[in-house]
Amino acid sequence: MKKHISLLLTMLLMLSFIPSAFAEKAAVKKAPAPVKYQVPASVRNISKENTYPNSTQDLPLLKPSDLTKKLINSSKEKIENPDLIRMLNESSINSTPFAVGYRAIIYLGQWPLNYESSETSPNWEYQKINTNYFDNRGGKVPYQIKYVQESQKIIRGGLTAKIANPEDVKKMMLLKAMEKTRLPLSFETIIGAGTKNDHIYNIPANRLGYLYAYAPGVNEKGKVTYGEVYLMLKGSKKFIVVKNVTSQGIGAWIPVQDYVSFGFAASERPR
Rank of each mutant, 00 (worst) to 15 (best):
F239G: 01
K2Y: 06
K223Q: 13
F187C: 03
L108G: 02
G251Q: 05
P53A: 13
F262P: 08
L113A: 04
D83M: 09
M173G: 08
L61Y: 11
A193H: 02
G157H: 08
T96R: 08
V245Q: 08
E119I: 01
G192Q: 03
I18E: 05
P82G: 06
I85Y: 00
E116I: 14
Q152I: 02
N202Q: 11
L13R: 01
V148A: 03
R271G: 01
K221Q: 15
G194P: 04
L62F: 06
V169F: 03
E90A: 14
A41Y: 05
Y115R: 06
K238Q: 15
G227A: 04
F22H: 05
I129N: 05
Q127G: 00
K76D: 07
L208H: 15
V39Y: 09
K180S: 11
I191T: 14
S186T: 07
K63Y: 06
Q248D: 05
S118D: 12
A41Q: 14
M173N: 11
L9Q: 08
V224D: 05
A252C: 05
G251H: 04
Y214A: 04
F134C: 00
S261K: 09
M14S: 08
D198Y: 00
V245N: 10
N81V: 00
L61W: 10
G251Y: 04
L175V: 08
P255Y: 07
L88T: 04
N219Q: 11
V100A: 09
N202I: 00
R44F: 09
F17M: 14
K170E: 14
W111I: 02
K69C: 07
E150K: 14
W253F: 11
I18P: 04
K180I: 12
I240R: 06
L208Q: 14
S75D: 07
K153R: 15
A104W: 00
G217N: 02
P204S: 09
D198R: 03
I105V: 14
A213L: 02
S151H: 07
I105F: 01
G192N: 05
I145T: 10
A265M: 10
S92Q: 11
S74E: 11
G263R: 15
L113V: 03
Q257P: 03
P255N: 06
L174A: 09
P97A: 12
S74Y: 07
K30H: 05
T160C: 00
R182A: 15
K221M: 09
I18T: 10
V43Y: 03
P34S: 05
E90G: 12
V39K: 12
L185H: 11
P142D: 10
Q152C: 01
V141T: 15
Q127H: 11
S186N: 13
F22S: 01
S151Y: 07
L113T: 06
S91A: 11
S267T: 15
I240E: 01
L88E: 02
D58R: 11
V260M: 10
P142G: 02
L12Y: 04
K25N: 04
P166C: 07
E77W: 01
K223R: 14
F187G: 03
Y115M: 02
